[in-house]
Each structure stands twice: as structure tokens, then as C-alpha cells.
Amino acid sequence: MKDNYVKLTFAAIGENVATSRMVLSSLLAGYDLSLSALDELKIALSEAVSNSIIHGYGEDASQMVTVEFTIADDILTLAVIDQGVGIADIKQAMEPTFSTRPEHMGLGFVFMDSFMDSLEVTSTLGHGTTVLMKRNLKSEQLFNADAV
């Protein structure tokens, strides 16, 4: 597949979580991914974008989230960038079941970590957070899982 790059900037509203998933799906249309693999990538992106909107910006619709989609040598890189409140303790935030809100399960980072080959979080309090995730689109487990 051809290398590709898309930069998407959108208002921090919940409806745009689906927008970002749609862009991801259409970028990956040329790859013969299994349904479950595509679902995993969509969940990882959904979690990161939801975190930016909910935690980064407290659902302030005047703020912007940027997602950079890069496909290079069949490696997908997703960078989810906000200029929100930042994360005080990244290690704690990434622990399973850690959540700052009662209805949230603390599964967001667990899913990102499980579904991607690598996950990097950089954050500065008061300045924002960048989540960088990569997954090899050619790796074997992505193929034929649904065909068996």
C-alpha cells in the first residue's frame, strides 16, 4: 500500500470521536484487515480521542483535538494531540481500573496498550497531552482471523 498522511483537527465534541474513526476506516480500506483487527484500531483511537475531549478539555467544545494518521512502510501511526489540562501522573493514569470519574472503567489505556504494538504518552500539566500509537498493518495476526 502507498504511504499516506492525514492531519485532522476538530472541535472537542463527542460526535467527532466517530468522525475520527470514520477517517481511520477509510484510510485502512485498502488493507485486507480482519474485522476484529480493524475494530481494535478503531477502539484504540476512540479511547485516545475520548480522553482528550473528556479529560483533556472537560468537553469544552471551543477546544480542538488533532489526530495525525501516518501510514509508512505498512506501519500505522496515530498521534492524538490536545492542548488540554495534561496528566499529572501518567503511570497512574495508565493503570487498569484507574479512573477519575465514577462511570469510567479505566480501560481506555488498557485497550490502547493491548491493541497497539506501541503506546507512548507525553504530557505537560496545563499544556496538553500527546498519545502516540503504532501498529504494524502487515503483522500476521491482522490477517485472516475472520476467515478461519
Partner: peptide
């Protein structure tokens, strides 16, 4: 066809 941790949280709640 799609559920993420927000959806799971709503079901658990």
C-alpha cells in the same frame, strides 16, 4: 457494531 470503554462504562453503571 462498535463499543469502546465509554459504552462499557455505561453498561456497568
Amino acid at each position: 457494531s462498535f463499543i469502546d470503554s465509554s459504552g462499557l462504562g455505561a453498561i456497568i453503571g
